[in-house]
Write a protein that binds this DNA or RNA. Sequence first.
DNA 1: CAATCATTGAACCATATGGTTCAATGAGTT
DNA 2: AACTCATTGAACCATATGGTTCAATGATTG
Lengths: 111, 111
Amino acid sequence: MVQQEVLDRTFAALADATRRQILIRLGQGPATIGELAAPFDMSLTGMKKHVHVLENAGLVTTEKVGRSRQCRLGTERLEDAMSWIRFYQRLWERRLDGLDAYFTLTKEDDQ
Amino acid sequence: MVQQEVLDRTFAALADATRRQILIRLGQGPATIGELAAPFDMSLTGMKKHVHVLENAGLVTTEKVGRSRQCRLGTERLEDAMSWIRFYQRLWERRLDGLDAYFTLTKEDDQ
DNA sequence: CAATCATTGAACCATATGGTTCAATGAGTT
DNA sequence: AACTCATTGAACCATATGGTTCAATGATTG
């Protein structure tokens, strides 16, 4: 998967309040689909779709345990989004000299 | 606009490679819709829509100058997204004690 | 005034998103 | 085996997204 696609999926996954709350909930520890759905007025199917989006973005990993599915925070994939924003902020603050500057700040092959 | 909506729009605006490139381009200085569209194989109307999304997210401001429209980087609205990610990362790293922790890290009224 | 040039609005299109309901599957319990 | 429970797949729906084309507007130039 190209870097751009990683960023697309990561930012898109974060662009929903329900999903951001799911991430925060998972920060407390693993939870099943049912446990995740409980605080929201939402069907289990709906919750599972959100988890799937987060999983596709690499922000969450899941594993079937018995008849339920354990969801956990994924690896630190968010680092990609973080570093893009960090780059952009430097550009905003210092008005760096455009694209060239990006490559001095990161080792990625596409911005 | 509620904090959640700000985050929704900001992350959604960033979830598109074209728009991220527009931001980086505008880091070099102001540009018109036509200038922004030039490097992309895209209609002016299409480009204008992207600029509109960025404008709604507060990431870009525009102003009609003569017959063209000048686009500039907006105010540092990205700070909201940045601070959310920063919070989330601390949670991820330290496995903080859930939602309560959020309010110790920020002054926002909704996470 | 006429011509040109940059942007914009309207209408349209295909696909994605965020949600639902209902039925099916598969695991655990009795 | 029968029952229950959690998840899942399929189908559906409304709206949003990312793009287009074509015509209209409004400013600049000759």
